[in-house]
Design a protein around this nucleic acid. Structure first.
Lengths: 224, 224
DNA sequence: CCGATAGTTCGATGGCCAACGAAGCATACA
DNA sequence: TGTATGCTTCGTTGGCCATCGAACTATCGG
């Protein structure tokens, strides 16, 4: 086998060791005592931690008289720590930039059988502000107004008993971090878009592409 | 405080969780059962691990009927795992590219008071192959031949009693990962190089620069 | 409704490991 | 040579946590 990532993870996973490692991120070599103070632990405990870090090859050590100087073993170790520090701040300030980098995917894509991405979120918001649907923490309901709205556009409410699948459901959008519409109604809308040639889709991609005037007709039909 | 890196580290630090996370590196969302199989643990244990990963924000979960689909929470998580995987292979196949990127520093630099970098390592190897010094695991000794060699070149062996500092010492080279010569003899050689104007040094840099014909004279004097 | 499958909760068990006191070794300095 | 300082080794203690059996809820497919 090989040095598992779990081994490295558990080395970083101890609070005292993590504090030592971040202290060493500055690039300067530090002595065992300095690192013990940094981590706020006794010298004995520090010795134990440091020998683990050295035999785990995260640190290298240099003996200089009665001092022992420790530093990060190489650039890769620094990179791991750097990415961990980045992640730890990202977890604090949620998603500045999330989701796919592909702009087409980000704009509109298929999520199982319904519309997701920016277009999906815009649609959802538009339906909410028109009081066609009501968003109520986890649950989404169709209003009477909404029932008329979709009846008008050809949705078959009589087929309802066929399945226990809910009519409306909100689905957390991966790239946008807000809701888009799932459920039978979400599926029907996507079908509707294909049927009226407002969108097409490329083989082997989840991206949904609006046709020439498709976006305009989409906005008109759903009140965006 | 904030999500400490040790928290993230310990989440990755468990072997079962690490296997789940690497399985999710493919980008596909996997169900709890699939991940349990992947990590070779029972469903109960998997539930426990997965809820930890979700509340630690390394994973996001989507409920789809009676299935739960897990995937990496965001790009940063993937980056952390990627850097860990890189590190774990680097630890296997030591240093393709280590040390300073600055070529001057890499080539020759001062390590405390002696010569390090490529030039330092070449010198050390040359002295070993000429049987001037003997490298013996951690300890380096000057041979009788070596004693004559350095006496000839002006090293003052009589000053020995002045200090307990060892005559010869090997020092692990940070960029090259092999030995170079430290100790009183290492110091003397560097002084020798400056004295005979084979090298110069720039203010504020540890880099050692060979002068016009300095490198040639260096090689000649020490048998490289 | 029934059986099957997916996932959960609870509790008990066992093992690992961080922490430090005490004592020891190594080095430096006067 | 003696004394302070830096680091280590040993053994003990205490707490945390991965694991799974048993029993439970939720969902699907008829």
């Amino acid at each position: 086998m090989q040095p598992e990532i779990s081994t490295i993870g558990s080395l970083i996973g101890d609070p005292s060791r993590a504090r030592m490692l971040t202290a060493l991120m500055g690039g300067k070599a530090l002595t065992a005592t300095e690192l013990a103070l940094e981590a706020d632990i006794s010298a004995q405990t520090a010795t134990s931690h440091l020998s683990q870090l050295v035999s785990g090859k995260l640190l290298v050590v240099r003996k200089q008289g009665r001092h022992k100087y420790f530093q990060l073993a190489n650039q890769q170790v620094a990179e791991v720590l750097e990415s961990l520090l980045t992640l730890s701040t990202v977890l604090l300030i949620p998603n500045i930039a999330t989701g796919p980098t592909d702009p087409e995917l980000k704009h509109a894509r298929i999520c199982y059988d319904h519309l997701a991405g920016e277009a999906g979120v815009e649609l959802y918001d538009a339906l909410v502000s028109q009081k066609i649907i009501v968003d109520n923490q986890e649950q989404t309901h169709l209003t009477d107004l909404g029932r008329a709205f979709f009846n008008e556009r050809g949705f078959d409410f009589s087929a309802k008993g066929r399945s226990k699948r809910p009519l409306c459901k909100s689905c957390l959008d991966w790239s946008e971090r807000t809701n888009h519409l799932a459920g039978r109604l979400g599926q029907w809308i996507l079908d509707d878009l294909f049927e009226h040639a407002m969108v097409t889709r490329r083989a082997d991609s989840r991206a949904v592409i609006f046709t020439a005037n498709g976006r305009k007709r989409f906005k008109a039909r759903y009140g965006l």
